[in-house]
Amino acid sequence: MLVFVLSWSGVVEFGFAGDTKTPVIPKGKGDHCVAETDYMRRNHMDLLVHQRDETVIRGIRDEPFSLVECVDCHVQRDAENTPIRVDAKEQFCESCHAFVAVKIDCFGCHAAVPDVASVENAGRAHEYESAENNSARNIQWIPHKQLLSFKQENMVSQKKTYYRNHNVHSLIKTN
Protein backbone atom coordinates (compact mmCIF):
# COMPACT_ATOMS: atom_id res chain seq x y z
CA MET A 1 0.00 0.00 0.00
CA LEU A 2 2.74 2.41 1.03
CA VAL A 3 4.61 1.55 -2.10
CA PHE A 4 1.50 2.24 -4.17
CA VAL A 5 0.91 5.64 -2.54
CA LEU A 6 4.52 6.66 -3.01
CA SER A 7 4.52 5.61 -6.63
CA TRP A 8 1.23 7.44 -7.24
CA SER A 9 2.53 10.68 -5.75
CA GLY A 10 5.57 10.21 -7.95
CA VAL A 11 3.40 9.98 -11.04
CA VAL A 12 1.38 13.06 -10.34
CA GLU A 13 3.85 15.38 -8.73
CA PHE A 14 7.15 14.72 -10.38
CA GLY A 15 6.24 12.88 -13.55
CA PHE A 16 7.91 9.74 -14.76
CA ALA A 17 11.50 10.01 -15.77
CA GLY A 18 12.04 8.94 -19.32
CA ASP A 19 9.62 8.64 -22.18
CA THR A 20 6.24 8.42 -20.39
CA LYS A 21 4.04 11.38 -21.25
CA THR A 22 2.39 12.72 -18.10
CA PRO A 23 -1.03 14.37 -18.25
CA VAL A 24 -1.23 18.10 -18.75
CA ILE A 25 -3.91 19.27 -16.34
CA PRO A 26 -5.62 22.58 -17.15
CA LYS A 27 -5.63 25.07 -14.29
CA GLY A 28 -8.91 25.71 -12.51
CA LYS A 29 -10.52 28.97 -11.41
CA GLY A 30 -9.21 30.77 -8.33
CA ASP A 31 -6.15 30.22 -6.16
CA HIS A 32 -6.92 26.89 -4.58
CA CYS A 33 -9.37 24.02 -4.51
CA VAL A 34 -11.77 23.20 -1.64
CA ALA A 35 -8.93 21.24 0.00
CA GLU A 36 -5.17 20.86 -0.47
CA THR A 37 -4.26 19.78 -3.99
CA ASP A 38 -2.45 16.65 -2.78
CA TYR A 39 -5.42 15.68 -0.68
CA MET A 40 -7.83 16.26 -3.57
CA ARG A 41 -5.71 14.19 -5.96
CA ARG A 42 -5.93 11.16 -3.73
CA ASN A 43 -9.35 11.57 -2.17
CA HIS A 44 -11.65 13.46 -4.54
CA MET A 45 -13.57 10.29 -5.36
CA ASP A 46 -14.27 9.53 -1.70
CA LEU A 47 -15.38 13.10 -1.08
CA LEU A 48 -17.74 12.91 -4.04
CA VAL A 49 -19.22 9.58 -2.97
CA HIS A 50 -19.76 10.89 0.53
CA GLN A 51 -21.31 14.10 -0.74
CA ARG A 52 -23.61 12.36 -3.23
CA ASP A 53 -25.18 10.20 -0.50
CA GLU A 54 -25.57 13.18 1.81
CA THR A 55 -27.26 15.15 -0.96
CA VAL A 56 -29.47 12.53 -2.58
CA ILE A 57 -30.63 10.72 0.56
CA ARG A 58 -30.46 13.35 3.29
CA GLY A 59 -31.01 16.47 1.20
CA ILE A 60 -27.87 18.28 2.40
CA ARG A 61 -26.79 20.56 -0.39
CA ASP A 62 -24.69 23.24 1.24
CA GLU A 63 -21.43 21.27 1.19
CA PRO A 64 -18.26 22.15 -0.68
CA PHE A 65 -17.72 18.83 -2.47
CA SER A 66 -20.50 18.95 -5.00
CA LEU A 67 -19.76 17.87 -8.55
CA VAL A 68 -21.48 21.02 -9.81
CA GLU A 69 -18.81 23.09 -8.09
CA CYS A 70 -16.01 20.91 -9.50
CA VAL A 71 -17.33 21.62 -12.97
CA ASP A 72 -17.85 25.33 -12.26
CA CYS A 73 -14.18 25.87 -11.38
CA HIS A 74 -12.41 23.38 -13.63
CA VAL A 75 -14.23 23.90 -16.92
CA GLN A 76 -12.22 25.37 -19.81
CA ARG A 77 -13.65 27.56 -22.53
CA ASP A 78 -12.93 27.66 -26.23
CA ALA A 79 -12.19 30.75 -28.36
CA GLU A 80 -15.92 31.65 -28.47
CA ASN A 81 -16.12 31.38 -24.67
CA THR A 82 -18.23 28.23 -24.98
CA PRO A 83 -17.55 25.84 -22.12
CA ILE A 84 -15.86 22.55 -23.06
CA ARG A 85 -17.07 19.39 -21.31
CA VAL A 86 -14.76 18.50 -18.42
CA ASP A 87 -14.84 14.88 -19.58
CA ALA A 88 -13.68 15.75 -23.11
CA LYS A 89 -10.20 14.69 -24.23
CA GLU A 90 -7.40 16.60 -22.47
CA GLN A 91 -9.84 18.46 -20.23
CA PHE A 92 -9.48 18.58 -16.47
CA CYS A 93 -11.12 15.28 -15.52
CA GLU A 94 -10.28 13.26 -18.57
CA SER A 95 -6.59 14.18 -18.88
CA CYS A 96 -5.72 12.42 -15.63
CA HIS A 97 -8.33 9.67 -15.87
CA ALA A 98 -7.13 8.68 -19.34
CA PHE A 99 -3.57 8.49 -18.01
CA VAL A 100 -4.48 6.17 -15.14
CA ALA A 101 -7.06 4.28 -17.25
CA VAL A 102 -10.01 4.93 -14.94
CA LYS A 103 -13.35 5.49 -16.63
CA ILE A 104 -15.46 8.37 -15.28
CA ASP A 105 -19.14 7.54 -14.89
CA CYS A 106 -20.20 10.88 -13.42
CA PHE A 107 -21.03 12.61 -16.66
CA GLY A 108 -23.36 9.95 -18.03
CA CYS A 109 -25.93 11.63 -15.82
CA HIS A 110 -24.41 14.88 -14.53
CA ALA A 111 -23.93 18.05 -16.53
CA ALA A 112 -20.30 18.29 -17.71
CA VAL A 113 -20.49 22.04 -18.36
CA PRO A 114 -21.63 24.66 -15.88
CA ASP A 115 -25.19 25.77 -16.23
CA VAL A 116 -26.12 29.39 -16.62
CA ALA A 117 -28.06 28.91 -13.44
CA SER A 118 -26.87 26.87 -10.50
CA VAL A 119 -28.69 25.67 -7.43
CA GLU A 120 -28.99 29.22 -6.11
CA ASN A 121 -31.19 30.32 -8.97
CA ALA A 122 -32.58 26.96 -9.98
CA GLY A 123 -35.99 27.06 -11.52
CA ARG A 124 -36.65 28.24 -15.02
CA ALA A 125 -40.38 27.80 -14.94
CA HIS A 126 -40.86 31.20 -16.59
CA GLU A 127 -39.22 30.00 -19.79
CA TYR A 128 -42.10 27.98 -21.17
CA GLU A 129 -42.92 28.16 -24.79
CA SER A 130 -46.46 29.04 -25.83
CA ALA A 131 -49.13 26.38 -25.42
CA GLU A 132 -49.97 26.31 -29.15
CA ASN A 133 -46.52 25.08 -30.18
CA ASN A 134 -46.62 22.22 -27.76
CA SER A 135 -49.91 20.45 -28.26
CA ALA A 136 -47.89 17.47 -29.52
CA ARG A 137 -46.42 17.04 -26.08
CA ASN A 138 -49.84 16.73 -24.48
CA ILE A 139 -49.15 13.15 -23.61
CA GLN A 140 -52.04 10.75 -23.74
CA TRP A 141 -52.66 7.35 -22.35
CA ILE A 142 -52.17 4.29 -24.55
CA PRO A 143 -51.95 0.66 -23.36
CA HIS A 144 -48.29 -0.18 -23.36
CA LYS A 145 -48.48 -3.42 -25.36
CA GLN A 146 -50.45 -1.75 -28.10
CA LEU A 147 -47.98 1.09 -28.15
CA LEU A 148 -45.04 -1.23 -28.69
CA SER A 149 -46.63 -2.72 -31.78
CA PHE A 150 -46.93 0.64 -33.52
CA LYS A 151 -44.47 1.27 -36.27
CA GLN A 152 -42.24 4.24 -35.78
CA GLU A 153 -42.83 6.03 -39.07
CA ASN A 154 -46.58 6.57 -38.88
CA MET A 155 -46.87 6.65 -35.14
CA VAL A 156 -49.09 9.71 -34.94
CA SER A 157 -51.73 8.53 -37.41
CA GLN A 158 -51.79 5.08 -35.81
CA LYS A 159 -52.27 6.62 -32.42
CA LYS A 160 -55.22 8.65 -33.67
CA THR A 161 -56.79 5.61 -35.32
CA TYR A 162 -56.32 3.68 -32.11
CA TYR A 163 -57.99 6.39 -30.10
CA ARG A 164 -60.99 6.42 -32.45
CA ASN A 165 -61.46 2.65 -32.53
CA HIS A 166 -60.82 1.74 -28.92
CA ASN A 167 -62.65 3.84 -26.41
CA VAL A 168 -60.85 1.90 -23.67
CA HIS A 169 -62.06 2.86 -20.20
CA SER A 170 -63.07 6.21 -21.67
CA LEU A 171 -59.63 7.43 -20.71
CA ILE A 172 -58.70 8.52 -24.16
CA LYS A 173 -59.07 11.89 -25.71
CA THR A 174 -59.78 11.78 -29.43
CA ASN A 175 -58.82 14.75 -31.53
Partner: peptide, 25 residues
Protein backbone atom coordinates in the same frame (compact mmCIF):
# COMPACT_ATOMS: atom_id res chain seq x y z
CA UNK B 1 -27.73 18.21 -22.14
CA UNK B 2 -28.69 17.78 -18.50
CA UNK B 3 -29.45 20.63 -16.16
CA UNK B 4 -26.88 20.81 -13.40
CA UNK B 5 -29.60 20.37 -10.74
CA UNK B 6 -31.33 17.46 -12.49
CA UNK B 7 -28.91 14.64 -13.34
CA UNK B 8 -30.46 12.16 -15.78
CA UNK B 9 -28.84 9.36 -17.67
CA UNK B 10 -29.15 6.23 -19.75
CA UNK B 11 -29.91 2.98 -17.96
CA UNK B 12 -31.69 4.46 -14.97
CA UNK B 13 -35.30 4.96 -14.00
CA UNK B 14 -36.69 8.36 -13.16
CA UNK B 15 -39.91 10.04 -12.15
CA UNK B 16 -41.30 13.22 -10.61
CA UNK B 17 -38.97 14.39 -7.82
CA UNK B 18 -41.46 16.95 -6.52
CA UNK B 19 -38.75 19.39 -7.69
CA UNK B 20 -36.59 18.30 -4.78
CA UNK B 21 -33.82 20.75 -5.75
CA UNK B 22 -36.29 23.61 -5.33
CA UNK B 23 -37.74 22.19 -2.11
CA UNK B 24 -34.20 22.01 -0.71
CA UNK B 25 -33.14 25.39 -2.07
Amino acid sequence: DQQSWAPRGKGTVESCTLCVHRVDA
